[in-house]
Design a protein around this nucleic acid. Structure first.
Length: 307
DNA sequence: ATAGCGCCCTGGTGGC
DNA sequence: TGCCACCAGGGCGCTA
């Protein structure tokens, strides 16, 4: 389940092989995965062909590829998406939806068994602050003024991309979380998963962060203090940092930009460990459905809220 | 405004 | 062994 650490790992592992490469031609097979221009794989392919990859950035769980001519390709892997580079001759796996042939005899491939993942195209002028936030320095693009030859404008889908909360490593994270928690009845976990509050946490790292902070996932957000919000942010940072250091969590599908699985799974302290002893206190880890998601926690380290 | 739920989609799993 | 209900969960749209 690509969350922030997995997307960041994909970015880091793709960058050295991708930056400076020219996309010779593109094959996009499934209309489903083309979010913009909506359902137009041919238009998408035509719009990226001939462009060079200039830089790779990330914002939340979105990966951004800045292409020459002021075009930005945005990728969201959702649940089972994979984006990696392989030799052009490698047999295409089932559910390969896009293949971008590079000028060095290799291919950038997008595969997604469940077709939840999406590819989007934008012109730099549409992205505004997002470029800087994603670490793509928005140096003026001389050749980009005209619109980059993109076939469509259309609405700025997905809306989520333009409503992202602060990155967990951004100093404004504490304030955003504290503000979101105040007077809310929803379980704290629901807000951690809300990308408008903090960008980049998913089910795995939300559980890990709550455990590290000693907060039960079902705790009504409004019961938490500003101090709790601070501890939660600090816990999230530590968990995410560690996950990035270990190149992400591979449960089944996830691989990095070179096709290599991540190592973080062995270091998860609660996620996926129902019935096993808490690594902090030995109490068996429990699993419960919170905010529509399966949630793992230690009943001793994370005392349940009093009903 | 907010909270909760169903939907999308496929493959793996576990029960019988 | 085969069959099938069920589960995984990110984001979004709908409802009350």
């Amino acid at each position: 389940m690509p969350e922030l650490p997995e997307v960041e790992t994909v970015r880091r592992t793709l960058a050295p092989d991708l930056i400076g490469r020219r996309i010779e031609y593109a094959t996009v097979a499934s209309p489903d995965v083309v979010g913009r221009p909506p359902g137009d794989p041919a238009g998408f392919a035509a719009a990226v062909e001939g462009r060079r990859v200039e830089a790779l950035g990330r914002r939340g769980k979105y990966l951004l590829l800045r292409l020459s001519g002021g075009v930005v390709m945005v990728v969201h892997l959702r649940m089972t998406g994979r984006l990696w580079i392989c030799p052009a001759g490698a047999p295409a796996e089932l559910h390969t939806h896009a293949r971008l042939a590079l000028d060095d005899g290799r291919e950038l491939r997008f595969r997604d068994v469940r077709r939840f993942g999406r590819l989007y195209l934008y012109h730099v002028s549409e992205l505004g602050a997002l470029l800087d936030e994603a670490g793509l320095e928005g140096a003026p693009h001389a050749a980009a003024a005209a619109g980059g030859g993109l076939p469509v404008a259309g609405p700025l889908e997905p809306p989520g991309l333009f409503e992202l909360g602060p990155e967990p490593f951004d100093p404004s994270c504490e304030e955003s979380l504290a503000r979101a928690l105040a007077r809310r009845r929803a379980p704290v976990k629901a807000l951690l998963l809300d990308q408008r509050v903090i960008a980049g946490l998913g089910n795995i790292y939300a559980d890990e962060a709550l455990h590290a902070a000693g907060i039960h996932p079902r705790t009504p957000a409004g019961l938490l203090t500003t101090g709790d919000a601070g501890r939660l942010c600090a816990a999230a940072r530590e968990v995410l940092r560690r996950a990035i250091d270990n190149r992400g969590t591979t449960l089944r599908d996830y691989v990095d930009g070179r096709g290599v699985p991540g190592e973080m799974r062995s270091y998860l302290r609660v996620y996926g460990r129902e019935g096993e002893p808490c690594l902090a206190c030995g109490e068996p880890v429990r699993r419960e459905r919170v905010a529509g998601r399966s949630s793992f926690y230690c009943p001793r380290c994370q005392p349940p809220p009093r009903p």
